[in-house]
Nucleic acid binder design. Structure first.
Lengths: 155, 155
DNA sequence: GGCACCCTCACGTGGCGTCAGCGTAC
DNA sequence: CGTACGCTGACGCCACGTGAGGGTGC
């Protein structure tokens, strides 16, 4: 006749953190962290001995967090969405805004990475295995190629 | 007749951190941080009052650090290159290894970002402004699309 | 009484930025 | 004597991971 059995019969506040971890495939530490920063507030209570007791909605919440994270949202952004949800509103419009911003940021990131890729490839292509030892450089292969960037207009 | 004038005549340990900051276009805090983690050891001394005094080689070193950073190397990797340099060896072979690794990592990052880009675009394309309120979801638009990813064969 | 589980607190990651509260140079 | 510059902590960021040193449930 412990609180587990009692609460399980009503399906409320039945899960200890380890069970939630197994069911959600998230580390215990992560769940504790999410609770600490307030992401799980409406789904968690404490037992008389201080154990976190989660109700079944925590799993849906963790799924939402995981999914939103893989889509590139930060925990702060996710929190603001969850707060809207907890106030009874639909977080979708704000979510859409965030996702559109992410999409733009991702394009920019891809462009930056591609530029870096090109630059790295160029450096490696003209790499000198035994460069002349100069006192003015640490590794002559790694040098500012801003002037060489205009190369390619030959032929 | 301060140490500035004396050392300037020999061009050694003449620069205070603010001058280095101006000449290198790096924030003072950044230079202090680099010195703290040992990146600048052979180019810095202390005055009797505790001020950092840099010799002129620090500028070459900071340039190398900046350049290596923009190429994607971490400060740890840069440090190991500088340590090779300080032991009189050419850091180029190790640098090349690092850069090749970076190139691979960048390709993987680009692929991951492109996948994310596609997924985000798909989600935004089929976005429902006024979705049905379900109790099982927080925002129905943000849902695991693993099964819906095969959509697109209509019309 | 033993073992799995739970708790909090504190510190680490990278690459700095941002105060706060001092001393120093000119 | 001001003021621009220098110094050393300590804390913040982000999303946790790691480990210590304990208490709880069964």
């Amino acid at each position: 006749m412990n609180e587990r059995t009692l609460t399980l019969s009503r399906e409320r506040f039945a899960f200890k953190i380890g069970e939630v971890a197994r069911l959600s495939h998230l580390p215990v530490k992560t769940i504790r962290y999410y609770e600490e920063i307030g992401l799980l507030a409406p789904t968690v209570d404490r037992s008389h001995s201080g154990y976190r007791l989660f109700n079944e909605r925590v799993l849906q919440r963790l799924e939402f967090i995981k999914r939103s994270q893989t889509l590139g949202l930060s925990l702060q952004e996710i929190q603001s969405l969850l707060q809207l949800h907890d106030r009874g509103e639909l977080p979708c419009p704000e979510a859409k805004q965030h996702l559109q911003q992410k999409l733009q940021a991702i394009s920019a990131q891809i462009d930056a990475l591609k530029a870096l890729q090109t630059e790295l490839q160029a450096i490696l292509n003209r790499w000198q295995e035994q460069p002349v030892r100069r006192e003015t450089t640490i590794c002559p292969n790694i040098q500012d190629g801003s002037r060489e960037s205009e190369v390619g207009s030959r032929e």
